[in-house]
């Protein structure tokens, strides 16, 4: 099983989404692209853990999947104009 081409395609996806973060009009579009990057990075972390054959590396992916949610919520709450 070779995982390296998979990782390269995932990085290409991340690059396209980063381009949307740079050019996107307005804050909501940037936020959507940012959330997409989160999902892609979590998937890449799981693949890399399998590729390196260090099983314990998967914990980092769980941490990211849980914590990126808080980030998204903060920016969303700012955009909708509420007080914290």
């Amino acid at each position: 099983m070779t995982w390296l081409p998979v990782i390269i395609v995932m990085l290409v996806c991340i690059g396209i989404a980063v381009a949307r973060v740079f050019i996107g009009p307005g804050a909501p579009t940037r936020l959507v692209a940012f959330d997409t990057i989160n999902t892609l990075v979590v998937t890449s972390l799981v693949i890399l853990a399998m590729m390196f054959d260090h099983v314990i590396f998967v914990d980092v992916a769980i941490v990211y999947a849980l914590l990126s949610f808080a980030m998204t919520l903060y920016v969303a709450k700012y955009i909708q104009g509420d007080k914290f």
Partner: peptide
């Protein structure tokens, strides 16, 4: 742990999409 990462990803993605759509409509 991969199964747990998958479950966390599913729940947080669905809820985050709802929060983003709501925030965008209110803005």
């Amino acid at each position: 742990h991969a199964v747990l990462a998958l479950v966390a990803l599913l729940v947080t993605n669905a809820t985050g999409a709802h929060a983003m759509a709501r925030a965008a409509h209110r803005s």
